[in-house]
């Protein structure tokens, strides 16, 4: 019963995305489509970051580092997969093959970013609050400096896989949103399961949670790995949207932008994170002509938000679908 329902929903969803993708291709200018894709990538970033910063209450300031790992790993995998399969400038893969290549690459991106989340999280998640923020920032800087100093990955000028035209641009509406919906569903399910409840308990009182038989360190590291892996996928989509990635794409302001997204929506709320991601994606473009004021506006927004409403617009509440659209869930969820 569950499986038939899920299969039906999945097929309907894929058809819908495919249809929208086609319509966007036909009738909407590239510029707008690009903004929509940005919003989708942002949504993955925000929901991923929110799992650790919001739900678990462990403030990371270094998720740009995981995004970088995901971006480089995805691009590296796609490039090498292509040459292994014999694709090149005169033998371009078919569109469906492009998406498949990208998706395999994204799996690598998730794997390596998740691994980075483990390596960073395991030692540092013993620290609390602002110390954790600083250490994660430190790790992100180290990751960035490693990429900057690795000539095999293009060093400071960035990675384009040795292609004169840069990385193949395989990211399109369909794949962004397929991955976004997939990842957000997974993280949403996780958040509303017993695991998510344990994570929220850690946010509220770590010592009490530990006293209830929950290995809080292991839980935090688990959240960090999932969070990093999701952000890594977003990094991979970003790489194959931009066509080139440079270490400087993943500086601290990238992490801050992600934090703005989850703060606007409300720390700890999955739907809030999505709203924040869209807000940032759209305003970022709206302020394109006044580039130099963009970061200024962000910083004012950040300060104002903290003074006026430190828990974010939604707080940790969720926006829920109207009752008739919701499927009844088992248990007490």
């Amino acid at each position: 019963m569950v499986w038939t329902y899920r299969t039906a929903v999945s097929i309907a969803l894929i058809a819908l995305l495919f249809g929208i993708n086609w319509a966007l291709d036909q009738y909407v200018i590239d510029y707008i489509v690009r903004i929509i894709m940005q919003c989708g990538i942002n949504a993955i970033l925000a929901v991923g970051l929110n799992l650790i910063n919001g739900t678990t209450g462990q403030f990371s300031l270094g998720h740009a580092g995981f995004m970088a790992v995901g971006a480089y790993a995805t691009a590296f995998a796609v490039i090498h997969l292509e040459s292994w399969l014999g694709f090149n400038a005169s033998n371009i893969p078919a569109p469906w093959m492009q998406g498949l290549l990208l998706s395999v690459g994204l799996l690598f991106g998730a794997l390596f970013a998740g691994l980075a989340g483990l390596l960073v999280g395991a030692p540092s998640l013993r620290l609390r609050g602002d110390y954790l923020a600083i250490v994660t920032l430190g790790f992100a800087e180290i990751i960035r400096l490693i990429f900057t100093n690795t000539e095999a990955l293009g060093g400071a000028t960035g990675y384009s896989g040795g292609r004169p035209l840069g990385l193949p641009v395989y990211t399109n509406f369909f794949w962004v949103f397929l991955w976004a919906i997939f990842l957000i569903t997974l993280i949403g399910n996780f958040t509303f399961s017993s695991y998510g409840r344990a994570l929220r308990a850690i946010r509220e009182d770590e010592i009490a949670t530990e006293a209830l038989g929950i290995n809080t360190t292991r839980m935090k590291v688990l959240a960090s790995v999932i969070s990093a892996a999701a952000v890594g996928v977003a990094g991979g989509l970003f790489a194959h949207l931009m066509g080139t990635i440079r270490p400087d794409d993943f500086k601290m302001d990238r992490s801050v932008a992600m934090i703005v997204m989850i703060l606007v929506g409300g720390l700890g709320s999955v739907s809030g994170a999505i709203i924040g991601a869209i807000f940032v994606g759209v305003t970022l473009e709206a302020m394109r002509d006044i580039q130099q004021y963009r970061l200024l506006a962000y910083s004012l927004l950040l300060i104002g938000l903290m003074i006026a409403r430190p828990q974010g617009l939604l707080g940790s509440r969720e926006l829920r679908l109207p009752a008739f659209l919701r499927r009844k869930r088992g248990g007490a969820a």
Binding site: G129, L263, L295, L296, S299, P310
Partner: peptide
Amino acid sequence: RPLRGAPRLAPLITAIGVSLLLQNIAVL
């Protein structure tokens, strides 16, 4: 000062905001 007594992370985030703000004012 408006944040004295607020949850611990609010001042930290504000500080990041102030840092960004001053950077961008300086650029201008």
